[in-house]
């Protein structure tokens, strides 16, 4: 059994790493829960954003925060553009899986053509910084990621709860025809929400560029875990997505510390199955 310090450190690292799962899950959860579209290309968009941030940083020495300011609006536009296709071809939930899977493959190939299949690493001064709190080390980048993800989740949650647009989106998710009878132009709102989901992929991508090593095939690395996170966090619930991300991140990290690193991939789905069997009221 590892020491308490090691377990504590594993817990902290896990929760912080889970912030990225939550951030990736948020956009996916919004479009799945509120538009009934499962966007598998969400991960590819995040990596496209990551590669652009990497390119701007290494070739043009643009600070990552400035790159994010360019990449996030670009992703918003791509998300809204994708929605034009969904809308044009009246894509349903199941078809969206297939179509966005092919989007993801196309993006993967495009990334590979431009940036090759080599591993790319964006070295920044931020990557190695950490704060020492008692016996524990807290990596600064991951901490910033979690704060950003927390603010986004909270802001999105408030937006869905408190504003007319947010309420209209929730109403249209339940009964689009009746929402329309009260003046909700669901088509227009769906473009907005698709754009927002993709913009979140852009934010996640910025952090991926700073934290992870990039390779085209990595697009698929987060797929399984983030799907589990989306389901545990409840569809359409941004706060749930973030908390579920942190729960899965912490469980993986503890499993790696207690058992062995090989166990990590098993954890997310074990937690998902356990929670589905438990069937708590909040799910």
């Amino acid at each position: 059994m590892p020491s308490a310090t090691l377990l504590g450190q594993a817990l902290i690292s896990g929760v912080l790493a889970g912030g990225l799962y939550g951030l990736l899950a948020m956009g996916l959860s919004l479009s799945w829960g509120l538009l009934r579209l499962v966007n598998l290309s969400h991960f590819a968009l995040a990596f496209l954003a990551a590669y652009i941030v990497y390119e701007l940083g290494t070739s043009y020495h643009v600070e990552p925060w400035w790159s994010a300011a360019m990449v996030v609006p670009l992703m918003f536009a791509i998300g809204a553009g994708q929605h034009w296709l969904f809308d044009r071809f009246k894509v349903n939930e199941l078809a969206s899986l297939l179509i966005t899977f092919s989007f993801a493959v196309i993006l993967e190939v495009a990334i590979q053509l431009y940036w090759t299949a080599d591993f790319r690493r964006y070295e920044t001064e931020y990557a190695t910084r950490s704060i020492k709190a008692g016996p524990f080390y807290i990596p600064v980048l991951e901490l910033v990621l979690c704060i950003v993800a927390g603010l986004l989740a909270w802001g999105t949650w408030l937006w869905l709860r408190r504003t007319y647009v947010g309420k209209a989106l929730r109403a249209a998710a339940e009964d689009p025809a009746i929402a329309a009878a009260y003046g909700v132009d669901h088509k227009k709102l769906a473009y907005l929400l698709s754009g927002i989901g993709a913009a979140y992929a852009g934010i996640a991508g910025t952090f991926i560029a700073l934290i992870a090593t990039l390779a085209p095939a990595q697009i698929w690395a987060y797929l399984g875990v983030v799907f589990a996170v989306v389901i545990i966090g409840r569809l359409g619930n941004p706060m749930g997505a973030l908390l579920a991300g942190m729960l899965i991140g912490a469980s993986e990290s503890i499993a790696m510390a207690v058992l062995s690193p090989a166990w990590a991939p098993v954890v997310s789905f074990s937690v998902l199955i356990a929670i589905l069997l438990w069937d708590p009221e909040w799910l």
């Binding site: 929730r170 339940e174 929402a179 009878a181 009260y182």
Partner: peptide
């Protein structure tokens, strides 16, 4: 034009007040 549909068709997961607020969306 406002409709009171057959079978009510409320937004079941939303609160009573949110349902009413949807009525004054415009």
């Amino acid at each position: 034009i406002a409709l009171v549909p057959e079978g009510r068709r409320l937004f079941a997961k939303m609160s009573v007040e949110e349902n009413l607020e949807l009525g004054c969306y415009l």
